[in-house]
Design a protein around this nucleic acid. Structure first.
Lengths: 109, 109
DNA sequence: CTGCATCCTCTAAGATACTG
DNA sequence: CAGTATCTTAGAGGATGCAG
């Protein structure tokens, strides 16, 4: 799936998936939902297996779509902190609902 | 995204998306949720732009995962009817939740 | 009518190395 | 510390034609 707005004209569900459908988008969101505020390398340690390439790309996508907030401090060494925005936080109930369904399917199969 | 169970060990949301994340899976489910019962060609007409290849593959995936039911009548000409199972129907509330979130994001951006 | 087989394309994802 | 540049690859997605 893609982060592009390839969603068929006007389907909100497909649009939602276009925002969070990337392979690492949800793991990143999940890490931020647990820790509230994380620096780049903390995020990298929390999202097991992700590379710099994938992490920075996911962060950029999510920021462009307004789901996470990036705050950069011009210090030496550099410090950048990431957190969920209101829009990002508001996604969590929907994820919960999907998770509950997912659990039911896992036990069923 | 894929229909394979590539979901990281034990994340219910990723597992859920592995079941419905294919490009045409949700459009098919959506059509069946509106019409309850559809034949192959009716489905094809309802899901705008889908090819035979993609439709039959999506139907097979969804059936294997227990989200839709396939009933075949051995007549001439052949007749096959598709509908949502209990598991498929139980997905709809989660989709609604995701749709509500999607709508909010569409107006925000 | 309801599909399957084949071949092809395109892009998300990953590996590796490098920089301010 | 926080990323970027470049190259490669795997596989989802698609077009077309054939079959029971």
């Amino acid at each position: 799936m893609s982060n592009k707005h390839t969603a068929q004209a006007g389907c909100p569900v497909l649009y939602a998936l276009s925002l969070i459908g990337g392979k690492w988008h949800l793991p990143v969101i999940w890490a931020l939902s647990r820790h509230k505020l994380l620096r780049y390398n903390e995020l990298k340690r929390n999202v097991c297996g992700i590379t710099n390439m994938m992490l920075s790309q996911s962060l950029k996508d999510l920021e462009n779509n307004g789901l996470i907030k990036r705050v950069q401090y011009n210090e030496i060494p550099p410090r950048v902190e990431y957190s969920l925005t209101e829009a990002g936080l508001s996604l969590l109930p929907a994820l919960d609902e999907l998770a509950k369904w997912g659990v039911k399917q896992m036990v069923r199969i």
